[in-house]
Design a protein around this nucleic acid. Structure first.
Ligand SMILES: [Mn+2]
Ligand SMILES: [Mn+2]
Ligand SMILES: [Zn+2]
Ligand SMILES: [Zn+2]
Lengths: 146, 146
DNA sequence: TGTTAATTGATAATGATTATCAATATCAAT
DNA sequence: ATTGATATTGATAATCATTATCAATTAACA
């Protein structure tokens, strides 16, 4: 009885779109299907390519537009690599950190740690900064790539 | 007797270039002077503009080339923002984290924390990953902008 | 089923980065 | 100081990613 979390997430995304009076179009569905099913961050171009493998006539402009829309809704988030930061992956509920394989780009998320937030806030205050947010990504080699 | 750490760093960078058999050219000097003296991350375009204010005829291509060279030598590092990651700032000796003002982009660095590395490694191992590196940036409001 | 405004895709425009290449300048050897 | 080998430069073109434009299409709702 393996529950497909991708399918689940896709349903939730569709509901959220409707709640925001955003139409459920084939273009948006295609991008969302790919993003909810992916196991690594994808660039706009990669999403476009994958969508075209299954469905035809998806404009690259619509991919960018959908990425914008999903970002605004906090359903996806930009993933940063050492070289650049063009890729997107699904954002998870609540604040999460990412652990990314430098070989295959597969990634998993892990939750925060209470002491961590306190430490970040304290480090900022020491320097007179009011810390509002933070970013944490770990890079390593996944089990499959070892 | 305020010591200018920018000047100091510039001298070190020049020495490192020489040690790697890289020529000390006016173009490289211009980019290095700006980067060692800046208090916030700068894009290639910004560096180009600033260089031209003081010295003429600096090609944008040479800015990109010098940024590449300095990155390879670990003398500068890419700074990532929520929107993108085109800016560079001087990398500091040893592993450091950044605290960046979301208003003015001014940034300061702060050192690691022993327990932090252990925590990162442990979180990775839990998921079968061999953690090699991490990235931590804090975002907040600096004293001047509050 | 018809109405209407949101959305789409093709295309053009923009902007950033990289590749090309002849001209120049660095640096070490003389 | 002069020379020569070659790394480096800047102008330009080429490429690549992203955004803007706009007429045609279509999702959502009455
Ligand atoms: Mn966190
Ligand atoms: Mn660290
Ligand atoms: Zn992997
Ligand atoms: Zn500030």
């Amino acid at each position: 009885m393996s529950q497909d979390t991708g399918q689940q997430r896709l349903r939730i995304w569709k509901r959220i779109l409707r709640e925001h009076d955003l139409r459920l179009t084939p273009a948006r569905k295609a991008v969302m299907e790919i993003l909810t099913g992916c196991d690594r961050p994808l660039t706009a171009q990669e999403i476009h390519d994958r969508a075209r493998d299954h469905r035809h006539s998806l404009g690259i402009a619509s991919v960018y537009r959908t990425l914008d829309t999903l970002s605004d809704l906090d359903l996806i988030q930009r993933i940063h690599h050492l070289q650049g930061c063009e890729a997107y992956g699904p954002a998870l509920t609540g604040h999460k950190h990412f652990l990314i394989c430098t070989e295959c780009e597969r990634m998993v998320a892990f939750p925060g740690w209470d002491e961590l937030d306190d430490y970040f806030k304290a480090e900022g205050e020491k320097r007179g900064y009011q810390v509002k947010d933070h970013w944490l990504q770990l890079f390593g080699v996944c089990p499959e790539c070892q």
